[in-house]
Design a protein around this nucleic acid. Sequence first.
DNA 1: CGCGGATGGTTACAGATGCAACGAACCGGA
DNA 2: TCCGGTTCGTTGCATCTGTAACCATCCGCG
Lengths: 165, 165
Amino acid sequence: MATNEGNGKAAEGKRGELAGLGEVLALETFLPYRLNRLADAVSREFQKIYKDRYGLTRPEWRALATLGQNGVMTATAICEHSSMHKTKVSRAVAELERRKWLTRTVDGSDRRVELLSLTRAGEKTYRELVPLAKAFEDALMAKLGERERAALGKGLTALETAIGR
Amino acid sequence: MATNEGNGKAAEGKRGELAGLGEVLALETFLPYRLNRLADAVSREFQKIYKDRYGLTRPEWRALATLGQNGVMTATAICEHSSMHKTKVSRAVAELERRKWLTRTVDGSDRRVELLSLTRAGEKTYRELVPLAKAFEDALMAKLGERERAALGKGLTALETAIGR
DNA sequence: CGCGGATGGTTACAGATGCAACGAACCGGA
DNA sequence: TCCGGTTCGTTGCATCTGTAACCATCCGCG
């Protein structure tokens, strides 16, 4: 309070910059915003590959990619490796199963556990998708210079460590 | 087409690593995944500040931040400056208005346009939030070394330019 | 004027998402 | 053997999101 604003209807011009000290936050340079913006843009672009061509949602693509990378695993393991919420994985797996891209097998030694594995068809899809994903990433990286690519990698890794946990 | 896929049925044991060539994609190092993961983690953390303490959603926080930074503006302008979808902004603005943190004024020269501006209460909230946001960012950045901070900035900027459009 | 075509903004609707609660199965101790 | 405490995974529900359709207004042109 006691700020310098002439109350009343004073047609104050535009606020913001002129507001005293470091009171303004530049959204464009704010880390959380930048990360979200980038992640969003990149995902939206990459999504075209798995969505338009294979009708996969992002959780489904991730589950598929995780299974393709690691082989047989449980739903819980997929959660950990893909950073997805329980329910997302549950639903993604259900859909992949419905499409016959993976099968479940109840673990004999612990019947709560389901061992998930890609079917032949699921593997085929995965193997088709991998080069597309790599090409996408390569194309994007190709737009950066050598130094910038290195900087990006270093920066992201550092941030991952910082957030860690 | 004409890709090197040996469509053999070879009874491969556990899939993944041993699958021939570069057929596997390491999700942990895949750019879209890394970005999403990071954005998500950072946002989730930062969210505590505006959500728990002010009951704001992310779109609301962004709209508030955009208005606080730029002063009077239209909904469309908020969309552009905050990279948010039309409807998100519409709803966020409606809620901020309901809370009496902003008011609308129909533009006299074009009655389709609404000029949005923060109320006294809205500005107060904004001014409280800004230092918290900066502190959050600083704390996070403080976990990185000098070089890493620079690398991150450089990398993100480069990526923003690359995606640009 | 009088239209067709843009533009600002809202809303109906269908999907996606997370939380919390749940059932089933396991585990360890009394 | 029985029981409480856990873990695996699913589902009900309330919320959030984007697409598309919509209304109101404006603009340019004949």
